[in-house]
Design a protein around this nucleic acid. Structure first.
Lengths: 328, 328
DNA sequence: GTTCGCGTTGTTAGCGTTCACATCACGCGT
DNA sequence: ACGCGTGATGTGAACGCTAACAACGCGAAC
């Protein structure tokens, strides 16, 4: 412990502390002597004791949902990188299902651990609602979350992304665009539906019935079977790339040529999309940027005790055009 | 803090502590009074102070590489679930590149935070080597790691998995099986090559030249182009599903029918594989089991101060046969 | 009726840091 | 020669909890 180092260096424990914290008022020679003692003893400061007195753990909590999926995994990755770069640890709680109680528990759990702040990746309405009753006093930022509660949010502009693909398809001359959506509880699913609807109505087209899936390739496959059997479908916007893969599979089985007979577009731009058959037109989300941004926002709140203003940061999506879409 | 609760409940702080720690010798009535005071005040104990005196943080560290990939992400997810179920927090460090220095830094970083134990997801030889010089005194378990250092390991039996696919292909009557491998620094890549070689040589066949990739769909695509141009290739075992997707894409472009002319098999069974065109024969790895098992091993080491024996746990892989492989 | 044991509760002393303040040496202005 | 400011260092307390032990009351056993 610190006292040992102090003894070996012939100084007081406080001086050792000063060296460790880069306090200016330490003579260069003393500093060297202390440093020397530190690595002679292989001393490593005890951050727990430090956290006790400073009341800062330099740990951030992250609550996320199924970090097995590409989106959340990438976001969490971005968060972790940014946090570590800023000298913070990241403690993760990954929920199986996001319901209000689950989120509450996770937040409590993290609060107990005395994290300095929390990032909640809350893509579901139910999760967003749980943010209404937060443990008091801990800064929180929501990623991909809704407007619930008194919390700043960072997210990719889903509406805009959906609008981009839909307009792309309409621009190719398709009379209308069908949509396979995500589960209705998800804010992202909702945003994509909104953008799709908006683009259609701006073009004076009527929105066809929405087919809905659960993000999984299988649900896309099932939607694809239905679409293949329908008349006059020439363009489909699928709410994520995994489901789009399922759609493509169903079309392949049914002998529906893509993009020959039906154009298909996805959302996310997972690494695989470029190699689907055919390569998938999709919307790229910069998850890393979202992660970075959320940490920025959170740290600003933590480090400056500034007057709190609720903000909503939006990261722009990017349309990636590949071979799965073509003129009508 | 605890004193407030004690005052409100009319007991000493120590009794509050006892209630919080489920100490047996507290009168039922007292316990109730204390509990009552606790949630009347919204009191939450300070785990930092607790950790300082108990010298256990109930936090585990996880060092992983690119948690964006399906395998690591799933493993980390399994680890987190298991750890939380056991009442431990999980602090994650996700490395961009795994070199010895990077792993060392991560371990140091976690050691400073006073984690009770560390799981290193160390699928690369260089990472495994870094385990040789660990911060002393902290229990460590390596996942997918090699035999380096004095560390227990938990992993899926790569050799066996590769053997299973290769035998499956040979059993279908293919004269030999080509292989697209992962990067040579990866232990998993090596294990898969080994199993493939073993199966071939057991069947008295010669192993063709290995094409090597970097796990990415693109590298699989490039290998696929090469294979498509070669004579007499009828079966290919690709070291992961993402690269297999690339291979399938290349074959589709070159007009090589799968499995008509060439059978293709992968490794991992990512959720997408079932919906590739054609659905991919592959080897399923139970990442969740690996995660759970590694926590079991680690906690046993932490909680019982038993004599330390190095162990290597192996989780069996499972062959999943789909439409991408057929008789020669 | 005294003693013993046991269940329950209280008291005190740290855990290893940092913070606030005290101290000391030294140089400078007057 | 004196006081005073300033930079370098030391001292004691505090952070909020648990461990160890002490103390107390009460029923059983002699």
């Amino acid at each position: 412990m610190m006292a040992d180092v102090a003894r070996l260096a012939g100084v007081s424990h406080q001086t050792v502390s000063r060296v460790l914290n880069d306090h200016p008022n330490v003579r260069a020679e003393t500093r060297i002597r202390v440093m020397d003692a530190i690595d002679r003893l292989g001393y490593r400061r005890n951050l727990v004791a430090r956290a006790l007195v400073t009341r800062h753990s330099r740990t951030l909590g992250v609550v996320s949902f199924d970090t097995t999926l590409y989106g959340p995994a990438s976001t969490v990755y971005g968060i972790e990188q940014a946090a570590r770069a800023a000298g913070y640890f990241v403690s993760i709680v990954s929920l199986k299902s996001i319901d209000r109680a689950g989120v509450r528990d996770a937040l409590d759990y993290l609060a107990e651990q005395a994290v300095d702040g929390i990032v909640v990746v809350a893509p579901q309405r139910s999760a967003a609602r749980a943010l209404a009753d937060l443990p008091a006093g801990i800064p929180v930022v929501a990623v991909e979350g809704g407007e619930a509660g008194d919390v700043s949010t960072v997210s990719v502009d889903q509406v805009e992304g959906a609008r981009l693909v839909t307009e792309h398809l309409l621009g190719l001359g398709h009379g209308t665009v069908w949509h396979v959506s995500g589960p209705s509880d998800w804010l992202e699913a909702e945003g994509r539906i909104q953008g799709w609807r908006a683009a259609l109505s701006d073009a004076g087209r009527e929105a066809p019935e929405v087919l809905s899936g659960d993000w999984s390739p299988r649900s896309g496959y099932e939607a694809g079977r239905r679409l293949a059997g329908m008349e006059g479908v020439t363009a489909v916007f699928v709410a994520n790339d995994q489901m789009a893969l399922g759609v493509l599979r169903a079309f392949a089985e049914e002998g529906v040529r893509v993009p020959g007979r039906i154009s298909v577009a996805g959302f996310d731009d997972i690494p695989e999309s470029e190699f689907f058959s055919p390569p998938l037109t999709t919307v790229r989300q910069d998850f890393a940027a979202v992660g970075r941004r959320s940490i920025e926002v959170l740290l600003r709140r933590i480090e400056t005790r500034e007057q709190w203003v609720r903000e909503a940061f939006v990261v722009p999506p990017e349309l990636v055009i590949r071979a799965s879409t073509s003129p009508a």
